[in-house]
Deep mutational scan, measured.
Amino acid sequence: TKEGQWDCSACLVQNEGSSTKCAACQNPRKQ
Rank of each mutant, 00 (worst) to 15 (best):
Q31A: 13
K21G: 04
A10D: 07
G17S: 13
Q5Y: 11
R29L: 07
A24H: 10
A23D: 14
N27E: 15
P28S: 09
D7F: 01
T1C: 10
K30I: 13
A10N: 06
V13W: 06
G4T: 15
E3P: 00
K21M: 04
G4E: 15
E16K: 04
T1L: 08
A10L: 04
T1I: 12
K21H: 08
Q14Y: 10
S9A: 10
Q14V: 07
Q26L: 10
C25F: 00
C22A: 01
N15G: 12
A10I: 05
A10M: 00
T20C: 01
V13K: 13
D7M: 07
S18E: 05
A23H: 08
C25M: 04
A10Y: 03
T1A: 09
S19I: 12
G17Q: 10
A24K: 10
S9L: 12
Q31P: 11
Q31R: 05
G4F: 13
R29A: 15
K30E: 08
Q26K: 15
S18W: 01
A23P: 05
L12I: 04
C22T: 03
Q5G: 05
D7C: 10
P28D: 15
T20N: 05
S19P: 09
C22Q: 05
G17M: 13
W6V: 08
A10E: 01
C25R: 02
C11A: 01
C22Y: 00
G17K: 12
A24E: 12
Q5A: 01
N15H: 07
A10G: 00
E16A: 10
G4Q: 14
T1M: 10
C22V: 02
C8E: 08
N27W: 06
N15M: 03
A23C: 04
K30C: 02
A10P: 05
Q26V: 03
E16I: 10
E3H: 02
S9D: 12
A23Q: 09
K2P: 00
Q14C: 10
N15T: 05
Q26E: 15
K30F: 12
Q14G: 13
K21A: 06
S9K: 14
A23K: 13
A24T: 08
C11H: 06
V13H: 14
C25L: 01
G17T: 13
D7H: 03
E16M: 10
Q26C: 11
V13G: 13
K2C: 10
A23V: 09
Q31S: 12
N27I: 09
P28Q: 14
D7N: 15
T1G: 11
C8T: 05
Q31D: 15
S18G: 14
Q26S: 13
N15Y: 01
K2V: 02
C8A: 02
K21R: 07
T1V: 09
K2G: 07
R29N: 14
V13N: 08
Q31N: 12
P28Y: 11
A24V: 04
T20F: 06
A23S: 09
L12Y: 11
C22K: 01
W6D: 15
S18K: 13
A10F: 00
C25W: 01
A10R: 01
T20H: 07
T20Y: 03
A23G: 04
T1K: 14
C11N: 05
A10W: 00
C8V: 01
P28W: 10
A23Y: 03
Q5N: 14
Q31T: 12
Q31I: 00
G17C: 10
C22N: 02
S19Q: 14
W6H: 11
C11D: 02
A24R: 10
S19V: 09
S18V: 07
V13Q: 15
E16N: 11
C22L: 02
T20S: 09
E16G: 07
K2T: 03
K21D: 08
V13D: 13
N15A: 04
L12T: 10
S9Y: 08
S9I: 10
N15P: 01
S9E: 14
Q14E: 03
A23N: 05
N15K: 09
A10K: 00
S9G: 06
S9T: 12
D7G: 06
L12G: 06
W6N: 15
S18A: 11
E3G: 01
G4W: 03
Q14M: 13
C11T: 02
A23W: 01
Q5S: 13
P28G: 06
S19E: 12
E3T: 05
A24L: 05
E3N: 06
K21N: 07
E3S: 04
E3M: 08
C22P: 03
N15F: 00
C22M: 00
K21T: 07
P28A: 11
K30R: 07
A10Q: 09
C25S: 01
E3R: 02
V13T: 08
W6Q: 14
E16T: 10
C25V: 03
D7L: 03
Q26G: 11
Q14H: 08
S18T: 14
C8P: 01
C25P: 04
Q5T: 11
C8M: 01
N15C: 03
K2A: 01
T20G: 07
P28R: 09
C25Y: 01
C25N: 05
C11Y: 00
G4N: 15
E3C: 00
E3K: 07
R29C: 12
C11K: 04
R29V: 14
Q31F: 05
P28V: 13
A24W: 01
Q26Y: 07
L12N: 15
E16C: 03
T1R: 04
K30W: 02
S18Y: 08
S18I: 06
C8F: 00
K30Q: 14
K21Y: 03
R29P: 09
W6M: 09
C8Q: 06
A10T: 03
Q26H: 13
G4L: 12
K2S: 15
Q31H: 13
T20D: 08
E3V: 01
Q31L: 15
W6S: 13
K30L: 05
Q14N: 11
R29T: 14
S19C: 12
P28I: 09
A24N: 15
S19K: 06
Q26N: 14
K2F: 02
C11M: 02
C11R: 02
Q14D: 09
E16R: 01
P28H: 06
K2N: 13
C22W: 00
E16S: 09
K2I: 05
T1P: 00
W6K: 14
C25Q: 06
L12C: 07
Q26W: 03
K21W: 03
Q5V: 01
A24I: 06
E3F: 06
E16L: 05
V13L: 08
G4D: 15
W6F: 04
Q26R: 10
